[in-house]
């Protein structure tokens, strides 16, 4: 297997607060990798470090062999990394169609058949978005906003899709749909790094998973291994 993303001993701080104390993880091409852990464990910080919103104190980050830290945050999407941020980051004043178009901000092939096909695929994955095409993003429900954020991220044609808490605050029927779509996106060839508090669902889906606690990786293994681990069950799966 080839490694797509590799973090080695990554440290990140917000001022004096040390958020990541030496994270190392690998994402292999074609996999779904889950990052689970409690609130404040550093999962979102890890995502922000990968997308470049936060800088590293120390450590290294390589994407497809290239030093990611040398690439400006706004150029990383062009390298093939697309992030669906925590809280979805919908542009509230833009229409659904404009939001989706923002995902393709760096693409210059707007008139090509590939672009049209990508757009069609997004509307196929999320038919609800097609119905609301000209509605302002801020007026959508939480589940619809999550779909919009995912559809928008796909328009960048990512090879690595970063999903930060896609199920947060969603109704159960939406959660099931979102996880189905994640599997489908992965089956079509996109590698996925998934941050979730909904550990059962995430581990059920993930090829590999990492457990984070207070800024460190404390466990890792395949999704199935961690799902079966009694200590993980106690701490994160709500099984007693």
């Amino acid at each position: 297997m080839t490694t797509m993303l590799e973090l080695d001993d990554v440290h990140v701080a917000y001022g004096r607060i040390q958020a990541l104390r030496g994270i190392s993880l690998r994402v292999e091409v074609g996999q779904i990798v889950a990052l689970i852990g409690a609130n404040g464990a550093g999962k979102t910080t890890t995502m922000k470090a990968i997308s470049g919103i936060l800088g590293l104190q120390s450590g290294s980050m390589r994407f497809e062999g290239e030093d990611l830290t040398a690439i400006r945050a706004d150029l990383r999407v062009g390298k093939g990394i697309s992030q669906v941020p925590e809280g979805r980051g919908i542009f509230p004043g833009m229409t659904v169609a404009e939001n989706i178009d923002m995902g393709a901000y760096l693409r210059s092939d707007r008139r090509s058949p590939e672009f049209a096909a990508d757009l069609e695929r997004v509307y196929e994955l999320f038919p609800r978005l097609a119905e609301r095409r000209s509605q302002a993003g801020g007026t959508l429900s939480g589940g619809e906003q999550q779909m919009l954020a995912m559809g928008r991220a796909l328009m960048a044609r990512p090879r690595l899709l970063l999903l930060d808490e896609p199920s947060m605050g969603l109704a159960p029927q939406f959660i099931a749909q979102i996880f189905r779509v994640i599997e489908e996106i992965n089956a079509q060839g996109t590698t996925v790094l998934l941050v979730e508090q909904n550990a059962t669902q995430a581990l059920g889906l993930a090829h590999e998973a990492y457990v984070m606690e207070t800024g460190e990786v404390t466990r890792s293994g395949t999704g199935a291994e961690l799902l079966a681990d009694p200590t993980i069950q106690d701490a994160y799966l709500g099984v007693s």
């Binding site: 470049g52 919103i53 706004d74 999407v77 941020p85 542009f91 509230p92 833009m94 923002m102």
Partner: peptide, 24 residues
Amino acid sequence: SRLGRGIRAVAQDPATATLMGVNR
């Protein structure tokens, strides 16, 4: 325009605009 859309994106959510590839 595309650049104008970048302006609106930064105004509405600067961090997400960066994720979309907008140079703030």
